[in-house]
């Protein structure tokens, strides 16, 4: 009837892993944000798949909340990036600190 849930779950896990890998290895903050989105999407996929297998609407409802959270996170995250950029362009480069490990 439909492909087994396992396929989607594995797909989601792999997507989650890819997102995680990107998040820990990329330098650019924006791309790291995108990787976060990948991870949240993997979560959504997992929720929907479980929702189908369990025949329970709760999973789909949770996806809705995850999406809202993703939107809120991005808003603030990009706000932070913009703030950094503003401060960077207004202050001299020497004052920039580098964050240690």
């Amino acid at each position: 009837m439909n492909v087994p849930a396992a396929w989607y779950l594995v797909l989601a896990a792999v997507l989650f892993g890819i997102g995680g890998y990107g998040l820990v290895t990329r330098r650019s903050a924006l791309i790291m944000f995108m990787c976060l989105e990948l991870m949240l999407n993997a979560v959504n996929l997992t929720f929907v798949t479980f929702s189908r297998t369990l025949s329970d609407i709760g999973g789909q409802a949770s996806v809705f909340f995850v999406m809202v959270v993703a939107a809120a996170e991005v808003t603030v995250g990009l706000g932070i990036v913009v703030a950094i950029f503003r401060r960077r362009s207004t202050t001299s480069v020497d004052e920039l600190s580098e964050m240690k490990g």
Partner: peptide, 19 residues
């Protein structure tokens, strides 16, 4: 960034617990 990562991990855990 790290908070976001934590949140993603958390909600993934929730998804799996849901399953």
């Amino acid at each position: 960034l790290l908070g976001g990562l934590a949140a993603a991990v958390f909600i993934y855990g929730v998804a799996i617990l849901y399953g």
